[in-house]
Design a protein around this nucleic acid. Structure first.
Lengths: 237, 237
DNA sequence: CGGCTGGTTGATTGGTTTCAACAAGCGTGG
DNA sequence: CCACGCTTGTTGAAACCAATCAACCAGCCG
């Protein structure tokens, strides 16, 4: 169970040993990206995807000269289609927030594996649905959650996603994002993120120190965030 | 060219007469939904999708008792997967904003048609990519565009999408949304939408009367909105 | 040590919400 | 037919949340 992708996909539908072996076979060309640099588009194969093996990355979009919005976070076990940005290379980038390792899955390999192993195909399809649901939920957060609710919701989402791939305990998870990153994700300034963070700490809900998030009251946090994990589509277990 | 879906898909990749015929064959069970009511989930076939034949609909998400966010708009020619909300029926609904007619495409039919007609498969795949890009762009708008920029961007997006299916002229398009709808889309109150709308009119960029949008200065509007249509993935023509 | 990044704090400004009232359009029923 | 209610749009004043600007602190690393 070394591979987070394998672990995550098995949370969408049960995978046999054969499925798991095929998945490993599909992973090619591993590469490392240094923190705070852009992950270059895969030239040649427009239907290839990257699997994030370790580290955190993000999709972001620049508006004008001094505005930048992080539109999604990519965690270990996530799939990202760089083809989605082939057409818009000018203004949409995927970049590493920490040191990141990725493995390429070619379009041909993807088709081969998903037709030979329907369970894998189903799991990958559900992964796509979950990704879309996360994106919608970010829209909801930005559209109608208050500052403190947004932050609470993000913490719930990330804790849940990381726990699904074995990278979080019941109460803690790694949290390499800076307050500036959080600000660009949640549509606020880092100054205000800072104050909101203090408020959450004051309410004894979470604390964030030394790149680690500790959740003191998950129920309270979820309630404040109006967080309902069903949209992430993980099955129990 | 009566069907908007056909017209839209042909904007992603050229379609042969056979492709078009197959697409028509795939459309089943047409049904009508009255304005301001929910479109019920398709029970039974979780991989079936709906094609919007006419009218405007939206996906929306309720938070608490009095907050509601419209997360996406569904226009004629759009596909929507009601399976995406099977798992979260409680809090995510698709509802008609105007009278709407939809046609069901069963999961089996979808697979059959896309394997027999690769061009159709490609076009539908690209449609999915474009939908995801639109969702990301809404995230960007809510995250870092000002009130007036958001409204300008939405107008550009909708005009472009409607023009792609032949429902808009160079300068006008139907616009059945109320200011309250706009507010729930753009994360603001209808009062503020009202004032922003007046500002856009004052700048001679657009006017909105009698359920019709008139764009007086598309270049100016796009500039104000930081609108770049490439993300919609329509090919020229 | 110096310089850098990331975090913290305070004072001020400003964009939006909220609340409240009112006008216009429209379909319905007395 | 007009009255009535309902939805949609419009306007003003006050309150508030978050941005801005600016300064400062802590930790880290070359």
């Amino acid at each position: 169970m070394s591979c987070e992708l394998e672990q995550k996909l098995s949370r969408y539908t049960p995978l046999s040993n054969d499925d798991r072996q095929e998945l490993r076979r599909a992973l090619g060309r591993e590469r490392t990206i240094v923190a705070r640099t852009e992950i270059p588009a895969e030239s040649g194969d427009p239907s290839a995807v990257y699997a994030i093996l370790s580290g955190w990355a993000c999709r972001s979009r620049q508006i004008g000269d001094n505005r930048k919005q992080i539109v999604s976070l990519l965690l270990p076990g996530d799939l990202c289609d760089p083809n989605a940005f082939l057409l818009q290379r000018a203004d949409h980038t995927i970049s590493a927030l920490t040191p990141v390792t990725v493995a390429r899955i070619s379009g041909a390999m993807l088709r081969e594996v998903t037709t030979l192993n329907p369970s894998l195909g189903l799991a990958i399809h559900r992964e796509g649905l979950a990704t879309a649901a996360v994106q919608r939920e970010w829209t909801v957060s930005l559209g109608c959650r208050s500052g403190i609710e947004r932050l609470a919701h993000l913490f719930c989402e990330l804790h849940c996603r990381l726990k699904a791939v074995g990278l979080a305990t019941e109460t803690t998870c790694p949290f390499p994002l800076t307050q500036h990153d959080l600000a660009r994700m949640l549509g606020q300034t880092s100054v205000h993120i800072n104050r909101t963070l203090q408020e959450l700490r004051g309410l004894r809900l979470v604390s964030l120190r030394a790149r680690q998030l500790t959740i003191h009251d998950l129920t309270g946090l979820a309630k404040m965030a109006h967080f309902n994990p069903v949209y992430l589509r993980f099955t129990a277990g």
